[in-house]
Simulated scan of single mutants.
Amino acid sequence: MPRTLWLSWGRILAVLRKELIQLRRDRLTFAMLVGVPLMQLVLFGYAINGDPRHLPTAVVALDDGPIVRSVVSAVENSGYFRIVATPTEAQADELLARGEVQFALVFPADFTRRLLRGETPVLAVLADATDPAATGQAVAALAMLPQVALRAELTGALALRAPGAAPFEVRVHKRYNPEGITAFNVVPGLMGVILTMTLVMMTSMAMTRERERGTLENLLATPVRPLEMMVGKILPYVLIGYGQVLLVYAAARLLFQVPMAGSFVLLSAMVLLFIVATLAVGFTFSTIARSQMQSMQMTMFYFLPNMLLSGFMFPFRGMPPWAQAIGEVLPLTHFLRIVRAVMLKGSGLAEVAAEAGAIALFALAAGLVAMRRYRQTID
């Protein structure tokens, strides 16, 4: 048998040793191999929850009697609702529009009087249905509320009702997405997801490509300043980002009939702000990575928590507090709220100003880090 067909375990072990040494030197790749599985394990095991509870709820109690207080107590005891405000009806509408509460319970002024007369008063429940997954289980829990809320109070003559008749009616009004169409929630969010995935990767590879091809020396020999270099590198990708947004927006309107209740000009301005923040992250990665492969690895490491903790795939309020705190740092979290608020709720600048401020602050921080790391020398 020819000698070339024989395997030498000594040579194999030598190559294996060489690969292990190279892997040890490539710390970023080693961190990806260990960090990504650990991140997925922690996020999917602890942070992801498809059945959100303790959702922020406002109570508009035009009738503040003991019967109403018992119903509110039963609502909280269900575990799905957390009373955070007792506003007027107009204020409750504003809280829903800004996304500060998920539900608003409205008790009419004659709620107790009608119930004691043997009539069936109506408890109106206003629900922010922009994300159907976040409200589905809570709305289902409300269906059992009339049968269990007033068991202790309705005794004696008050209990003399027709068999199976509920003491009051729960009437749910789903705002912004009455039919609970998932596409109305997912498709607008794809704007931010696609921008995050593509722009960070393309921008992070821009500088590393220059370094690998040896053309970075020519750039460093010019009097171009760090800010000028950064702006010049990201401007083409701003146009690319707008092209992607227009494509998603056209598909949302034509294929999925997603409504556009707000201002397209406002949406465009918020898109520009988010693109700048995203490109600043990519430029920062390009100053850290030594190769295009490392740029791709860092992009995926950044993209994974954005996907899982922003509220795109899973209800944001279903996550534990520590996961929500991480999600609040990510610009995609705030951009998703802006897009859904403008397109589905018709929100204006005042309603999305806080979210826009968070994105602007992130963009400023990422830009400062990128310019600080950028050096006008190869080393």
Rank of each mutant, 00 (worst) to 15 (best):
L304F: 13
Y46S: 11
L246K: 02
D131H: 01
L266M: 04
Y374G: 10
V36A: 08
A61T: 12
M32Y: 11
Q324F: 01
E100H: 09
Q40M: 15
T29K: 02
G50K: 05
A127E: 05
V148H: 00
P163S: 07
L336N: 00
M201D: 00
P320E: 06
M144N: 14
P188V: 01
I12C: 13
T155F: 03
L219N: 09
S347C: 00
V34W: 01
V281L: 14
Q22D: 13
T284Q: 11
L142G: 08
V231T: 13
M32P: 02
T112I: 09
T198E: 06
A280L: 09
H334I: 05
M307D: 04
L216H: 09
V71T: 04
A360R: 02
A143C: 03
L115H: 05
S286Q: 10
V75Y: 00
E210P: 11
P167G: 11
A323Q: 01
Q257W: 14
Q324G: 04
R211G: 08
L254P: 04
F184E: 01
S204D: 08
L28V: 12
A109S: 14
A261N: 14
P66W: 04
A354I: 05
G35K: 03
E119A: 08
T215R: 11
L308R: 00
A104V: 03
F168I: 02
S295D: 06
L344V: 04
F362A: 06
R17Q: 10
T208D: 09
L41N: 01
A58Q: 03
F256L: 04
G214H: 07
W322R: 10
L220G: 09
S291I: 12
G10I: 12
V84H: 08
L216V: 14
V281G: 07
A138F: 01
V369C: 12
M144V: 13
Q376C: 07
K18P: 03
V187T: 03
E100M: 08
M197D: 02
G346V: 02
M39R: 07
R171L: 13
L154A: 03
A325G: 01
M201H: 03
Y237L: 15
T182G: 12
S310G: 06
R337E: 11
N218T: 15
N185V: 06
E76N: 04
A74L: 04
L28I: 13
P146S: 07
L254K: 07
F316Y: 09
L38Q: 05
G45Y: 00
Q297R: 08
E169A: 15
G241A: 09
S263T: 10
P305V: 07
K174F: 11
P163T: 09
P305E: 07
I378W: 02
E351A: 06
A360L: 12
Q297D: 07
L309R: 01
T29S: 04
V271S: 05
G10L: 14
F362W: 05
Q137S: 13
T88I: 02
G232K: 07
V106I: 14
A363Q: 04
A31W: 09
M371Q: 10
L267C: 05
A221Q: 13
